[in-house]
Design a protein around this nucleic acid. Structure first.
Lengths: 214, 214
DNA sequence: CGCATTATTGACCGACCGGTCAGTCAGTGC
DNA sequence: GCACTGACTGACCGGTCGGTCAATAATGCG
């Protein structure tokens, strides 16, 4: 009686596979691959450990599935970044703010991907580059290049470098918040992503705008 | 007979404690705390596992000692960064290049510290901020401020933000090399830190220099 | 030299690891 | 009714984990 109707029982919710994936993503993001035991995943997901191995062939397969899941969820969220109108400054500012907000809102996924990057495994890094970062980064560079053609920013700057700098600044903010909080010169920024983005774009723009009077 | 003279025997070298610390630093930097077993450290150091526990009370104590060791070695290497002469542009360029080179040359230490940052433990991050980054970062900000007072860069930019941007760009280069290699727009930069620094400073400077003609 | 101190070791421990297995159970088609 | 299936479980496996301990080798000192 209680089974067929109560799809979401209090201790759990949703399909078991999804619960396992969600638990795995959370724990892996928090502590990394090696620090997470299958028992911990099972407990958080509300299933038996053996059940995890029924759905995933190994711990590594579970990790990869959680990564793929997180990346798949992450990619399309960037789509609305380039569609804004306004001056180039405004569009860039919008992108910077939206990208940083995206990192902060999806902290779990961001951490998971970040952990993958720092492991530096060549194959995994290639997959990340091609399947996760590639499109969005290329799109950002394309925005820069189109801005250059329209004369909205200096033609002699490296578009890839500008894009890199923007992403780098945001990644750094995301991963160094806890440290920055204790650096007196930047404490006022570590909790205020909007202010951070504003200063970032200000510095960036006055470097990539064409000289005002020449 | 062979002991007192042969300080550096082929399989090992130096004091056992130092060998243990070196092995621990290498392995922890490569794979992280949880992925490294005491057996692995013992094997690489050429001592028994029990001997490690004779010199260090626990795995965590060994990790902390290795971290402290790495940080202690890392800090003074920054000292020669600010002492250069030349224009402000030249000094900043020198700092950017030297800092990035420092990261790359001490890859092991850099990775170790980076892993610590990403864990986001409040206490550890505070220690890192106060004992490792604090002085050097404050010094970099001071350089910026003095440049502002001398009119060598815009007075209305946030000195802390400029310093952050510089460090962020270098950290990002260091930790994303393997990924950048597969991003067609920046492949030419991912293996050339000198070119990267040049482009970085170029973009940075034209943003923080006072307007040329006004 | 004897003697205390330290450095080092192999054997060992309980706990936990990733993973397996035999089997229970609810649902479904016939 | 029955056969079959996939989700699911508790008990269990070999192996490794961090850590302990008694015993041995080396060392410094009177």
């Amino acid at each position: 009686m209680s089974k067929s109707l109560a799809k979401a029982s209090p201790p759990t919710s949703g399909d078991a596979t999804e619960r396992i994936l969600a638990a795995a993503e959370k724990l892996f993001a928090e502590s990394g691959f090696d620090a997470v035991s299958m028992n911990a995943v099972a407990e958080l997901a509300g299933v038996s450990k053996a059940n995890i191995f029924h759905h995933f062939s190994s711990k590594n397969a579970l990790y990869l599935a959680a990564m793929r899941n997180a990346c798949r969820r992450s990619t399309p969220l960037m789509d609305n970044l380039e569609g804004t109108s306004g001056t180039f400054v405004e569009r860039l500012h919008h992108f910077a703010r939206a990208h940083l907000a995206h990192l902060l809102e999806n902290e779990q996924t961001s951490r998971l991907i970040q952990r993958e990057v720092i492991e530096n495994d060549p194959q995994r890094c290639q997959e990340l580059a091609e399947q996760v970062f590639g499109d969005n980064f290329a799109r950002l560079v394309a925005i820069m290049r189109s801005g250059q053609q329209r004369g909205e920013l200096r033609a002699d700057v490296d578009a890839g470098m500008v894009a890199t700098l923007l992403i780098a600044a945001n990644m750094f903010f995301f991963q160094s918040r806890e440290v920055s909080r204790h650096l007196p010169d930047v404490t006022h920024l570590s909790d205020d992503p909007a202010a951070y983005s504003k200063l970032l774009v200000d510095i960036l723009m006055h470097g990539i705008l064409p000289p005002k009077q020449s």
